[in-house]
Design a protein around this nucleic acid. Structure first.
Lengths: 249, 249
DNA sequence: CTGCGCGGTTGACCTGGTGGAACTCCAGGA
DNA sequence: TCCTGGAGTTCCACCAGGTCAACCGCGCAG
């Protein structure tokens, strides 16, 4: 339904972003965009629900991809075990939902990095137009919703899983956005590693935080010592840190 | 500057929300609101920047309160230690920034619960009008920003503190919103305890996740034993949990 | 009294967005 | 071949949110 839409679509998008950045968002009327894209004003509004929409045209597509991708991991999991009991909740110990969410977020990141030109142009535009920044928040939030729902439906239905899902989804989105913005400000850097590291941190925190009865990455990675140490008294934080680090070494 | 604004302010807000809920947001013109509030259309726009603003009038105030409150903890901390070296970063081991953020969020929660009528009316309205839901996202995000910046500026400037700040702020806001919505759907319940518990979980995860060099609640509360234990091999998660819990007892 | 600022008011104006009527192009069917 | 119906497009008129500039009344200080 929302495919690449012939040529006129991309044409309008390019024309719009170009005009917006050159002469400002407010000072560009829809009529100008329509003219530049060789269509009438009415047709423009038929294609894009609003003037803002044209800026975030591909975001919708991306979100759809993400949703499909997450759904796919569930159906795959269901297929891998033939004739599963509960079809409703695709709970599968072989899949770490936290990891899947991170994968999805990484996909979004890669998409933006891949579309370097477009992304940078849009970023420059957003810097100038608060109204569009607000609009972006809304689309961003859709990812968060998708993640939260995915986690809620996929995670083992323990107590207080809800809070964990919400927090994790929000964290992933927020961290992703922060790192993406860093890249947009400095597109020379390769921030994939940073993203990976940050996501690893989040997953670690999520698993630790889930109160002991955690599924962990495959149930406490086998072959790994779990280490704990005792210190009496009221030591300085650094002392604790050192002790733990040494113990883990 | 944005004080209670005589009577006309509240008058307009009440009139607006009343009209919106009774006859729908779209079908209510600004002129009607202005008439109901006995002012001219232009005056309405002078008071509220937009038609949407009137719905979220007090949100702005709340946000301001939150910001002030957070800033206050920093200056208090600074005052408590006379003649501090670095005035720029109010780093104070007696204050747990994570806890302060939770306190701020709790304040927001309490405010809504306190304004039962208003909050419920607005919630009913938001249920009907997607446009307003989007707008609320934007205001919500401001809290997140405030929290993130507060954490960034207050936390000990270790490596990767940035990610932790961002994730924690996002988590707190998301969880707060979720629980608040639960209350709005069911205002008979007392969800304060749930909120507290959820926040405690988040703080625990944040501290554990921050990789050992954690400031903990008040820099390892004095008089508290810090307990750590060693377990060899590859124990089941429950064993670890039990061991730690016993050690802490 | 005069000048001044300030909040309120007024009316004109711009533009995003909607909806309807007409027109074109194309496919299929008698 | 002509009619018909539907999809895509265009044009036009209209609504309503939001801005602008000029103006008004009022209190207040010199």
């Amino acid at each position: 339904m929302t495919a690449v839409r012939t040529h006129t679509h991309a044409q309008a998008v390019d024309a719009a972003i170009d005009l917006f950045t050159r002469q400002g968002y407010e000072r560009t009327t829809v009529e100008e965009i329509a003219d530049a894209a060789r269509v009438s004003r009415a047709t423009f509004f038929r294609r894009f629900r609003s003037k803002e929409d044209v800026v975030f045209a591909d975001h919708e597509l991306l979100l759809e991809e993400v949703v499909v991708m997450l759904a796919a991991t569930r159906t795959e999991a269901r297929q891998s075990e033939e004739s599963m009991a509960d079809v409703g909740r695709g709970w599968d110990p072989n899949i770490d939902p936290y990891l899947e969410v991170c994968r999805a977020a990484r996909m979004v990141f890669d998409h933006h990095v891949g579309q370097r030109e477009t992304s940078l142009a849009r970023y420059a535009l957003l810097q100038q137009v608060p109204q569009l920044r607000d609009r972006e928040l809304v689309t961003t939030h859709r990812y968060e919703r998708a993640f939260t729902h995915y986690l809620r439906d996929t995670l083992s239905p323990d107590r207080s899983t809800s809070t964990a899902s919400i927090a994790f989804a929000a964290s992933v989105v927020a961290v992703h956005n922060a790192i993406l913005r860093r890249w947009l400000r400095n597109p020379g850097l390769d921030l994939r590693p940073d993203l990976e590291e940050a996501f690893a941190d989040l997953r670690r925190a999520a698993i630790l935080g889930s109160g002991g009865a955690a599924p962990a990455e495959g149930g406490i990675a086998p072959g790994r010592r779990v280490v704990v140490t005792v210190i009496e008294g009221s030591p300085a934080p650094d002392d604790v840190a050192r002790a733990v680090r040494e113990a883990l070494a």
